Amino acid sequence: MTILFLLIAYLLGSIPSGLWIGQVFYKKNLRAYGSGNTGTTNTFRILGKKAGIIVFLLDFFKGTLAVLLPIWFGVTDVSPLIFGMMAVIGHTFPVFAQFKGGKAVATSAGMLFGYNPIYCIILLSIFAGCLYLTSMISFSSVVAAATAIVTVIILPQLGILLPKDWILLLVVLIVASIVIIRHRDNIQRIKRKKENLIPWGLNLTKQKPLKK
């Protein structure tokens, strides 16, 4: 049963929501537009708000469902976070999309929501605050991931919100690292002040993206 649900979690994560929605409903291949990424950000930019919201929710709840399904079926010999991590890996390297996936932000958040909703909401609040200040989804994602790394180390030691659990520590370190590494090109553009922006927020870092 454990192996079956690990496979299910990976396959759930592998569903390329943005790619399929773009191809079926908009007749567009997201890989040919914008950043070429198939995740939420590029979906918003190329297909619009409605498609972006739908893709975010689908990608988010892939992670949540991967965590909760084994619990619902009584598979408790492995931490639910392991199943969630498999969904994140599936999203990043999807078998249904030539192993070229998104940057794992929404699915990682969904995984944490399934495990500890309060912790997830705190990280999402930090993401939203950074997004308002900088107008950059990439920067906000990296800050939220870095915050997850710091808090998963500190909070359990203080006995606040998170338990002392080496699997929790390991999974969060791996998933947050994936998010940060997948944003390495964005980080370079931020340094050059050329990162893409959303039409909301203060853009405090004064990014001036190249016009396309």
Results as ranks from 00 to 15, higher is better:
M1Y: 07
T2V: 02
I3S: 03
I3K: 07
I3Q: 08
L4Y: 13
L4G: 04
L4S: 12
F5G: 00
F5M: 06
I8R: 06
I8D: 02
L11I: 03
G13P: 12
S17E: 01
S17A: 00
L19W: 02
L19M: 01
W20E: 07
Q23E: 12
V24G: 01
V24T: 11
F25V: 02
K27H: 15
K27P: 00
R31G: 14
S35M: 05
G36W: 15
G36F: 11
N37D: 13
T38V: 14
G39N: 04
G39D: 14
T41Q: 00
T43H: 03
T43W: 04
F44A: 05
F44Y: 08
I46C: 11
I46P: 04
L47T: 06
G48A: 06
K50G: 13
A51S: 01
G52V: 07
G52S: 06
I54D: 01
I54Q: 03
V55N: 04
V55C: 04
L57I: 09
L58R: 09
T64V: 03
T64L: 01
L68E: 11
P70S: 05
P70Y: 08
I71R: 04
G74E: 11
D77C: 10
P80A: 02
P80E: 02
F83E: 00
M85S: 10
M85W: 15
M85R: 07
M86W: 14
A87E: 09
G90Q: 05
H91I: 08
F93Q: 13
V95F: 07
V95E: 09
V95W: 09
F96R: 02
F96Y: 09
A97M: 07
Q98Y: 15
G102Y: 11
A104E: 08
T107E: 06
S108K: 15
A109Q: 09
L112V: 10
G114I: 04
G114T: 05
P117S: 09
Y119D: 05
L124P: 00
S125G: 14
S125K: 11
S125A: 15
G129L: 13
C130K: 06
Y132I: 10
Y132G: 12
Y132R: 14
L133F: 15
L133M: 13
T134A: 08
T134G: 05
I137E: 00
S138Y: 10
S138Q: 09
S141N: 11
V142T: 13
V142Y: 13
V142E: 11
V142N: 10
A144T: 03
A145T: 14
T147F: 14
A148D: 12
T151I: 12
L155Y: 15
Q157G: 15
L158D: 14
L158R: 15
L161C: 10
L161A: 10
L162H: 09
K164R: 14
D165K: 11
I167H: 15
I167G: 12
I167C: 14
L169V: 13
V171F: 12
L173W: 13
I174G: 06
I174E: 03
V175P: 12
A176K: 11
S177Y: 02
S177L: 12
I178C: 05
V179D: 14
V179M: 14
I181W: 14
H183Q: 01
D185L: 06
Q188E: 01
R189S: 00
I190P: 05
I190G: 01
K194T: 07
I198C: 07
P199T: 06
W200M: 05
W200I: 04
W200S: 02
G201K: 08
G201W: 10
K206P: 03
P209Q: 10
K212N: 15
